[in-house]
Design a protein around this nucleic acid. Structure first.
Lengths: 202, 202
DNA sequence: ATTTTTTAATCAATCGATTAATTAAAAATC
DNA sequence: GATTTTTAATTAATCGATTGATTAAAAAAT
């Protein structure tokens, strides 16, 4: 039953840090919730910030795996690359439901861990999307006047805002909740084809 | 020179609360930055939270004005309504550059002011967009299979994520910064028409 | 003279971190 | 195999610093 505290602390910290943010969680609350002495946070992780960094890194391992996969077996086309990216992000949000909160929290109020952990992965994703749009326009798959920077931010916004807004909007929308995958499918379809009724389909 | 402290405090608080969030700003930092005694925060606003609420309400007056305008002179068509909404949001972000941060901060870690101020306006916007998409589909302007809830969240995401992500992504994108209006135009065009090259235009 | 504004000082509460002391487990010695 | 020594894990107590708020007195404005 020993060393159980270490695991328990990470589990508890993941939840509390995600819900309240780094500063709003005290080591006493962490310790109390985890049924552990508060001194163990310094003992095992070198302090509150060390514990937070360990939690943060764990949140990003699926992102790292996705980037590695995309590099080792590149999608066959830009359109395919976008679809693959979207599906991956959707699946990751399923397995790491708090990832968005950690990222947003870091982007709004960066802790010292932001540079080393968060920005590293985000810049990789940004680079991948940017290259994809470049190729897509060059190959004639995408509209010629599509701005790469714009498209990158736009797609990232579409793919992530839903998971940000989910807990908020579900209080307004009367219908049953949409799953992340349902949203992804529709969001991708809109991004690729727009929402206007096509005249040529009439 | 009297009551100068009150104005100075609101100005300073707007900046500091936007940059650091409610909890991360102490009344001492507020007072020091505003060149004012910290007791004046309680004297004028009843405490730190009272000051914050006053700042928050000021951030939303342009939203309130937009909603009032939309109600008094409704756009001529659903498509027109979406364009009007997008342009309004873009203009508001220009005049209230910290609005997004306040909203996001409240949505992630709600203060007691959230219910009374933030959620009220957000639910109004949500209702407006939802109705617009309903009408757009009914009138045949939008694709028949367009889900109203999805479209609402998606458009809100497109319109707001750029202003969230701007300070982050501008570190990655090499090109000169895009303005909010440039983004809005492209984002709307994509939302309405998609990014894929249209076969019927060849 | 009265009211309003501002100040410095202080309040209890809480923060993250550290300490010395205690307990349990593992390793080493006999 | 039993005993001793060493290492690791955990505890309660406490550290100085900072938090938001309050007070009574001083200053300024009316």
């Amino acid at each position: 039953m020993k060393k159980d505290a270490q695991v328990k602390l990470i589990e508890t910290a993941t939840l509390l840090f995600a819900q309240k943010g780094f500063n709003a969680v005290s080591i006493r609350e962490l310790a109390r919730t985890a049924n552990v002495n508060s001194a163990l946070i310094s003992y095992y992780f070198g302090g509150k910030e060390g514990l937070y960094q360990e939690v943060l890194e764990e949140q990003f391992i699926l992102i790292a795996q996705m980037l590695k996969r995309l590099e080792e077996s590149p999608p066959s086309s830009p359109t395919e690359a976008i679809i693959t990216y979207a599906n991956n992000i959707s699946a990751i949000h399923d397995q790491r439901p708090y990832l968005t909160r950690f990222i947003l929290s870091e982007l709004m109020n960066p802790t010292p861990c932001c540079e080393a952990v968060v920005k590293k992965y985000i810049s990789c994703i940004f680079g991948f999307l940017h290259t994809t749009f470049e190729e897509g326009v060059a190959k004639g798959e995408f509209k010629a006047d599509l701005d790469h920077d714009f498209a990158t931010v736009s797609l990232a916004g579409i793919m992530n805002f839903f998971f940000i807004a989910k807990p908020i909007f579900q209080g307004f929308t009367s219908s049953s909740e949409k799953t992340g995958e349902e949203y992804t499918v529709q969001a991708l379809d809109t991004f690729l084809n727009g929402i206007l009724r096509r005249k040529d389909h009439e």
